[in-house]
Design a protein around this nucleic acid. Structure first.
Lengths: 261, 261
DNA sequence: CGCGGGTATTACTCCGACATAATCGCAAGA
DNA sequence: TCTTGCGATTATGTCGGAGTAATACCCGCG
């Protein structure tokens, strides 16, 4: 009799079920979990550039998923420049220079494990270049609405601290409003990625210990400069803000290393 | 006789066959052609944010492709933040703020039709911020090998002009070598996107008329400053280079508008 | 008027087969 | 011996259909 039986997914959920980071909790679909699994494996260096992924059939069987779902996950990685597929040659990990490091999801994968210190340094160098420039543009182009949004985010940051999720949300809101105030779509897209990364580092800082410094005054200085329309002042204020954030993150990472040893 | 007959793809190749831009000429697979078709339709504004794509079954039938290939194409768009899919709600185009504007493929789609002047302006503002900073880093960190590569690219630019493909390749080589000299992975990833965009604008410039200005001297000034290790000088030289490129592109676009009218 | 459950619609996952394209080895020829 | 081309191999690519799961929408109930 043609009994339609589901393949025994119960036998081995495999690597796709770790509930915290991977797995498909909260709307994330199966292909998303597969992409996350492969993505972290590649970004973390567990699968090195040039290496070949095992064939679609074998790999999809190993993960207990259909070939179609597996292929869709690989398409996602391909779209982000992590891998490339050719008939007969298989699916190979591309050199790092091809990776879309600013893709929010790639950043998430990079911060899923222990982030590479060099990578964090590079990221902050980019922030140090871009964010002050954005602050200047915001100071020159902001309108009433921009200022209102930033103000509301600031009060939110004051009420809750960065230790709470609400506080971090307010922090993101502030940066987001600042970006919109610059009125440059490309900058916004770039900064959205940076914001994503900043969010990860913020979590990282909190993980090791309570943040010793109150970040609100620094944000206020940037805000004031933008309200005044003083571009130079905004640049300076933002530079110090990024520098301080960098110091805090570095300190947190060293502290984290310490307690690990 | 079980004669294996191909489904009549000959009847209607549909929109996937325009040979110049879309279509799968040169290794591009079917799903690539679909992604290109949908991507340009979205980026060009023919399908507006919030709009719903017709269902998978209907759309894949309309394009004469299987659902699997169509779905894989949609995954690519999803990975670049252009669309999002939910059961019952369908696949909807996301607001522009979610788009990954710096993704090389998205940039290609944006320049496939007539590029939006505002978008080009935003792009050059980003270049004006990032590239001088990269030039400074390159001046401070370059090694012998970096200089050698840049020198070779420069001679290539001198030999062929920007009118030839070889010349444009040399131009890309120069910028690429400069980026590597900065020794910052994230900057490289970002700049790879920018380079891609620059390439499109360069083609655009060439399309309308011969470039009136010889770009080599500007590049040489940047090169000299980097060789000397003079960061400030490199910043200044790169700023003027970007500014001139912006002027040329704007002029070309206006010229192009003129002859269209 | 608000609210909870049923329903219809849509994407999601699975399966199995066949098509296509690169690569490698072998053989024929210079 | 070296080169060239052809065919076998093996990977990804494409296809069609069937069944599952999730959710927006509507309708009836309180």
């Amino acid at each position: 009799m043609t009994e339609t039986v589901k393949p025994d997914t119960a036998s081995d959920p495999g690597v796709l079920s770790t509930p915290t980071t991977a797995g498909r909790g909260s709307g994330r679909r199966l292909r998303g979990a597969i992409a996350h699994y492969l993505g972290t494996a590649i970004v973390s260096g567990r699968i090195q550039p040039g290496a070949r992924l095992t064939g679609e059939v074998a790999n999809s069987e190993a993960l207990n998923v259909s070939r179609g779902a597996y292929r869709e996950a690989v398409q996602v990685l391909t779209a982000k420049g992590l891998v490339a597929s050719k008939p007969k040659d298989g699916t190979r990990v591309l050199p790092r220079s091809n990776w879309n490091l600013l893709d929010p999801m790639v950043l998430a994968w990079a911060f899923a494990g222990e982030p590479d210190p060099g990578f964090v340094r590079d990221l902050f160098e980019l922030r140090a270049v871009v964010e002050p420039a954005v602050a200047r543009m915001a100071a020159e182009r902001r309108d009433k609405d921009d200022i209102r949004k930033m103000k509301r985010a600031l009060t939110g940051m004051r009420r809750h601290t960065l230790a709470t999720e609400a506080g971090r949300a307010a922090d993101r809101e502030f940066h987001d409003a600042l970006l919109r105030a610059a009125h440059n779509e490309v900058m916004m897209s770039l900064a959205a990625s940076i914001t994503s990364a900043v969010n990860w580092t913020t979590i990282y800082k909190q993980r090791s210990r309570a943040l010793p410094r109150d970040p609100v005054p620094d944000h206020v200085r940037v805000f004031d400069a933008i309200v005044e329309g003083d571009g130079e002042k905004a640049v300076k204020a933002m530079q110090t803000l990024v520098d301080l954030a960098h110091e805090d993150t570095t300190a947190a990472m060293e502290d984290d290393d310490h307690r690990r040893i």
